[in-house]
Amino acid sequence: MSLQFLVDGTVAGATIGLGAIGVTLTYSILRFANFAHGEFIAWGAYATLAASAAMGLLVGHATPPLGPFSFTWLTLCAAVIAMGFTGGLALGLDWLLFRRLRDKGESIIAIMASFGASMALRSLLEALFTAQPTYFTRALQIARPLGFGLRATPNQMVLVVLAGLLMIGVHLFMTRTATGRGMRAVSENPTLARVAGIDVTRVIRITWMIGGALACASGVVVGLLVQVRPFMGFDLLLPLFAAAILGGIGSVPGAVVGGFTVGLAEAAAVAFVGAQWRGAVAFAVLIAVLLVKPAGLFGRRA
């Protein structure tokens, strides 16, 4: 039995975990399941592609790849710019759509609107870039041995590390800063938060920015390791929800643990059952959580 699925699962888990943090934060702070979150992943990936192409034109000559990796420093700069852009996109969608429904107190309508927005955003990507997949790089990478018969490409290794650093950063932000405390307070009790002097509007803005930026990072990881296509985020939506619910809605460490669990389970299913069933794994995890522990691993209530 090959344990290579552990590597693939860890890589998938990193992308799912990054996305699931955004899902769990918006879910607990804005109080609705955002079906458009997957589109932030896809838009983030395309924005990174566009930004690095634009910077490539500005630089005027081809930049060499960084060390053993298949991407350049331009890609990394572009990813940072695109994270800001995607945060802004999430903020803009909130301003246009969700804010108005929130004011009316209709959270279930907000879910439906997010479903409509998801269709519109994804189809807009198709209209702009066609449904055909595209790539950051077509360079082939040689997988290097890690021991125990496992192999990983340099890209996989560095991206998992970067994703892990981002996750730790968000966790520290949530637990050590005033804004993070405010976010946790709003997630538990928005009215008490206002009474206690927290600017809930500002907390909501920051939540969208963080959720959008992390979704973009997730999209860049998928884009660099697999491919970029308009459906890339929508196809991750069920794993994101499964991870967020498994970890417990509102818990950042829970979303990360949930993300790696779903990623590893998917990779195991691909290795031992068949790649065509990958998409059903997240559903199986979801059903198992709802049956056994609907509040999730680190959640407080269902």
């Binding site: 879910y27 609705f32 399941a33 079906f35 959270s107 279930i108 879910i111 939506l237 069920l238 929800f241 499964a242 619910i245 998409g279 059903a280 997240a282 559903f283 979801l286 059903i287 709802l290 609907p294 269902a302």
Partner: peptide, 14 residues
């Protein structure tokens, strides 16, 4: 209520 939405979404996928 949102869990129904997410689960039915999953049903359609599966």
């Amino acid at each position: 209520s949102d869990y129904l939405a997410i689960t039915t979404f999953g049903v359609a996928v599966v």
